[in-house]
Design a protein around this nucleic acid. Structure first.
Lengths: 333, 333
DNA sequence: ACCAACTTTGGAAGCGTTTCCGGAGCTGCG
DNA sequence: CGCAGCTCCGGAAACGCTTCCAAAGTTGGT
C-alpha cells in the first residue's frame, strides 16, 4: 500500500519498474485515489472556494472564467458560492459553508467588513480578493477612480460642461459601497475642469439596464439635460442609450454616452467605454492563489490598468444654439 | 463520540438535553464536522459537479445561477468544470477529474456521444443534462425546433417571403451540432409556407456578436438581400443589428430581425425574440438532481415552453416598390 | 413489584489514504 | 571481504468521522 501510494503520488523512492506496475494496475482497475481519504490522511483539499455576488452578470462570469482556467490547470477544483442578497451574505459568514472544504478562498467583487473578516479568518485559509477594493487581502483589481477619470476626462476634453452621471448600487445590497472611486472620479474631474457641481446631474439607481434607462429618463426630465452622460457601467449605459433613442435623440450628435467595463456588447452597440481586462483579472487572481498555496508570501496586490476605448457614442457637444436639438425627428430605430 | 456524531447529524435517539449540550459545545469551539472524514466513513460527498462549455456567456451563467441556487439550498456544494475546447473535452472524459468527488453531475448544453457516455458511466453517479438535447439522461431543455418555428413563423405571418437565417456553431468545437432543431425549424417553416428554399439565405458562423455582424454583411451582399433575418441567438442578432445600422438601414422598416433566447439586452435593444426561461431551466435541473439523489426514479426529462416576445425589431416587409429602400439616409445610430 | 420493550449512551470497528520507520537488498570503497 | 550508506519496500499508526452493537437506564403494563 505504501509503495502504491508513493507511486501514485509521484513521490521518489519507488523503483521505476514498480511504479510502472502500479500505474498499469491503476489504469486497469480504473482506480483513482479517494480524495476524501487522501485529504484525511494529511494532504490539502486541492479545492478553492470562489465567492461571487452575481453569477450571471458578465463581469463576474468573465472573472470566474479566467480564474477557473488557471486553477483547473493547476488541478485545483473550484467550489462555487453564490452570495447574493443580505440574507445569503449573513448566512455565508455565519455558517462558513466553505469551512474545511477549501485551501483558499477567492472573493470576487464583494466588500468584506471587519466582523466578516474575523469570521473568514476562522477558516484558516488564504484569501484573495478579485475585482474589489479590499486592502486587507492580496487583491487584483482596477483603479476605479482612474477609470472614472478616463471616462469623465474624455467628455471634458471633448468640450462638455454639463455632464450627467448615472451611479449604481447593488440591487440586493443597497448599502454596499459599489465602486466609490467611480463617483469620486466624477467630482474630481469636474472640479479640476472648473465645472461647478450640480447635484441634479447625478442619478443613483440599482445596477441594471432597465435602471439605466430610467436614470436617463430622469436626466432628460431636467430643464437643461446634460450634453453627455457618464455611466458607471456599460450595462447601465445600454439602458441610457435606449431611452435616448426612444426620445429621438441622436448619439453622439445630441448627447454623448460613455460607460465603463468594455462589455462585449459595447463593441456591438458602438459605445465609448473604459476597458478593463476582466478575464485577465480572474487569471491573475488564480495565479495569486497558486503562489500563496505554494508558500510564497502575500504579494501586495495588483492593480491592472484600464484604457479608454473611443467608439461612436461620444463627440463634442452640439454648439449652444442647437440645444435643444433643432429639428425633432421621429425615433430612429 | 458516537453520541456527538448523532447529535450533529440530527439523528434520532439522542436525548434533547444531550443534543443541546453537544450543539452548544460545537458552537463554543467553532467546530465543524470534517467533510472528508465524514464522507470517508460512509456518507455522500454532498457535492454536485457542473460541466459547462462556456462560463462567461449569459446563457450558461444564467443556467448555472439557477442551478446553484437550488443546490445550495439543499446544502450541496457546486464543483465547476469548464470544458471549453476539444482538448479540454478530451481531457475531461479521459481523466474524469470529477471522479469520486461528486454525487451527481450536471452537464449544461454539451452534447455527449456514446464513448463519452461510457466514460461518464464509470463515475457511477447520477447525470442530468440541462439546456441540451441528450435523451440518454434525464434532461431539462427547450424544444429548439418549436422555438425556431415561433421565430420564423412570426416572420412568415408578417408577410416576409425572403427570410435569411444566421445559424451558429460553437467556435471551439466547430463540429458539434449546436441546436440542429433551430435550423430544421427554418426549413420546415419555409416549406410549409410554400416559400422555395434559397441556400444563399443561410449563413453559418461561429457563435458571437461580431460573427453575427459579419454574417449580416454577407446577407447584405446578396443581389437581393432578405427582408427579414432569423438569428439562432440574440447575441448574434445584436451583431446583425449593428451591421444594419451601419448600412443605414432602418429596423424594422427596411429589414426585420428576430433572435432566440431573450437575453437581458434584447429588451434594451428592442429586439423581437423567442424567450426561454434560462434560469428556470437551471433550477429545474437542480430539482431533478435533488430528486435523483433522494432515490426517486429518473424522470423522463422536462421540456420547458418558449414564447415569442414581440418587440420593435420586426414588422411587415416594406412594399415591393420601396426595396431597396427609397431614400438612403445617413446612419441613424 | 417484575419483566418486556424501548430509549439513550459509549465502545469499537472500519472507511482509504499518507507517512513514519525499520528491514532487506545492493553498491562501492577501504 | 566487511561495512557504511543507499535505494526500495511494506508494516502500522494516524487522520476524523459514522454506524453497528451491546450495555445501561427508563417506562409502562400486569
Amino acid at each position: 500500500m505504501a509503495t502504491a501510494s508513493r507511486a501514485l503520488a509521484n513521490h521518489p523512492h519507488v523503483a521505476t519498474a514498480t511504479r510502472a506496475r502500479v500505474l498499469a494496475a491503476a489504469e486497469e482497475l480504473a482506480y483513482v485515489v479517494s480524495p476524501e481519504a487522501s485529504r484525511l490522511a494529511g494532504g490539502a483539499t486541492d479545492r478553492v472556494g470562489v465567492v461571487v455576488p452575481h453569477i450571471s452578470r458578465w463581469f463576474f462570469a468573465a472573472m470566474l472564467d479566467g480564474l477557473e482556467a488557471v486553477l483547473r490547470d493547476a488541478d485545483l477544483d473550484v467550489l462555487l458560492y453564490h452570495v447574493g442578497d443580505a440574507a445569503d451574505r449573513h448566512d455565508f459568514f455565519r455558517r462558513l459553508p466553505a469551512r474545511r472544504k477549501v485551501d483558499a478562498l477567492v472573493v470576487i467583487g464583494l466588500p468584506v467588513d471587519e466582523p466578516e473578516r474575523e469570521r473568514l479568518a476562522l477558516m484558516g485559509v488564504h484569501i484573495v480578493a478579485a475585482g474589489g477594493q479590499i486592502e486587507n487581502y492580496p487583491y487584483v483589481c482596477i483603479d476605479d477612480a482612474a477609470a472614472g477619470r478616463q471616462a469623465v476626462d474624455h467628455l471634458v476634453f471633448l468640450g462638455h460642461r454639463r455632464i450627467g452621471m448615472i451611479a449604481t448600487l447593488d440591487p440586493e445590497q443597497p448599502d454596499w459601497p459599489v465602486a466609490p472611486g467611480r463617483t469620486r472620479a466624477y467630482a474630481e474631474a469636474l472640479t479640476e475642469a472648473g465645472i461647478p457641481a450640480d447635484p441634479a446631474l447625478t442619478v443613483t439607481v440599482p445596477w441594471g439596464g432597465v435602471s439605466g434607462a430610467d436614470a436617463m429618463s430622469r436626466l432628460l426630465s431636467l430643464r437643461t439635460p446634460p450634453t453627455a452622460v457618464y455611466a458607471h457601467s456599460d450595462e447601465v449605459a445600454f439602458g441610457a442609450v435606449r431611452t435616448l433613442r426612444r426620445a429621438g435623440l441622436r448619439i453622439p450628435e445630441d448627447i454623448s454616452v460613455v460607460g465603463i467595463d468594455d462589455h462585449p456588447h459595447a463593441e456591438l452597440a458602438d459605445l465609448t467605454t473604459v476597458a478593463q481586462p476582466v478575464r485577465r483579472q480572474g487569471e491573475l487572481a488564480g495565479r495569486m492563489v497558486l503562489r500563496l498555496l505554494g508558500g510564497e508570501a502575500d504579494g501586495d496586490g495588483i492593480t491592472v490598468p484600464t484604457r479608454l476605448v473611443v467608439r461612436g457614442s461620444t463627440a463634442p457637444p452640439a454648439r449652444r444654439s442647437t440645444w435643444p436639438p433643432a429639428r425633432r425627428r421621429p425615433a430612429a430605430r
